[in-house]
Amino acid sequence: MPDLPQLLLFIAAGWLLNLTPGPDVLYIVTNTLRSGVRAGIVAALGIVNGCFVHVFAAAIGVSALLATSAMAFTVLKWVGAAYLLWMGVRLLFSKASPLDLHAGPAEPDLWRVYYRGFLTNVLNPKVALFFLAFVPQFIAPDASNKALAFLWLGLIFNINSLPINFGYAWLAAWAARRVHAVQRAMHWMDRAAGLLFVGFGLKLAMTDNPAP
Rank of each mutant, 00 (worst) to 15 (best):
Pro163Tyr: 09
Pro163Trp: 08
Pro163Glu: 12
Pro163Gly: 13
Pro163Gln: 11
Ile164Trp: 01
Ile164Met: 14
Ile164Arg: 00
Ile164Asp: 00
Ile164Glu: 00
Ile164Ala: 09
Ile164Gly: 02
Ile164Pro: 00
Phe166Glu: 02
Gly167Tyr: 07
Tyr168Phe: 13
Tyr168Asn: 02
Tyr168Pro: 00
Tyr168Met: 04
Tyr168Ala: 02
Tyr168Cys: 02
Tyr168His: 02
Ala169Lys: 01
Ala169Glu: 03
Ala169Gln: 04
Ala169Phe: 02
Trp170Asn: 05
Trp170Lys: 14
Leu171Gln: 04
Leu171Cys: 13
Leu171Thr: 10
Leu171Met: 15
Leu171Ile: 12
Ala172Ile: 07
Ala172Trp: 02
Ala172Leu: 09
Ala172His: 05
Ala172Ser: 10
Ala173Ile: 08
Ala173Pro: 04
Ala173Gly: 12
Ala173Gln: 09
Ala173Met: 08
Trp174Glu: 11
Trp174Val: 01
Trp174Asn: 07
Trp174Gln: 13
Trp174Leu: 12
Ala175Tyr: 07
Ala175Lys: 05
Ala175Phe: 12
Ala175Met: 14
Ala175Gly: 09
Ala176Phe: 05
Ala176Ile: 11
Arg177Asp: 15
Arg177Leu: 14
Arg177Ile: 04
Arg177Ala: 14
Arg177His: 15
Arg178Phe: 05
Arg178Glu: 11
Arg178Cys: 09
Val179Trp: 15
Val179Ile: 15
His180Ser: 15
His180Trp: 05
His180Pro: 11
His180Val: 12
Ala181Val: 13
Ala181Pro: 00
Val182Ala: 08
Val182His: 03
Gln183Tyr: 01
Gln183Cys: 10
Gln183Trp: 02
Gln183Pro: 08
Gln183Ser: 14
Gln183His: 03
Gln183Met: 14
Ala185Ser: 15
Ala185Glu: 08
Ala185Arg: 14
Met186Ser: 08
Met186Pro: 00
Met186Lys: 10
Met186Asn: 11
His187Met: 06
His187Glu: 14
His187Trp: 15
Trp188Ser: 06
Trp188Gly: 10
Asp190Asn: 14
Arg191Pro: 09
Arg191Cys: 05
Arg191Asn: 04
Ala192Met: 10
Ala192His: 00
Ala192Arg: 00
Ala193Glu: 00
Ala193Tyr: 03
Ala193Asp: 01
Ala193Cys: 12
Ala193Pro: 01
Gly194Lys: 01
Gly194Asp: 03
Gly194Glu: 03
Gly194Ala: 06
Gly194Ser: 05
Gly194Tyr: 01
Leu195Met: 13
Leu196Met: 15
Leu196Ile: 13
Leu196Thr: 09
Leu196Asp: 04
Phe197Arg: 07
Phe197Cys: 06
Phe197Val: 06
Val198Gln: 04
Val198His: 02
Val198Arg: 01
Val198Glu: 06
Val198Thr: 07
Gly199Glu: 07
Gly199Lys: 06
Phe200Cys: 06
Phe200Asn: 04
Phe200Ala: 07
Phe200Glu: 05
Phe200Ile: 08
Gly201Gln: 12
Gly201Asn: 09
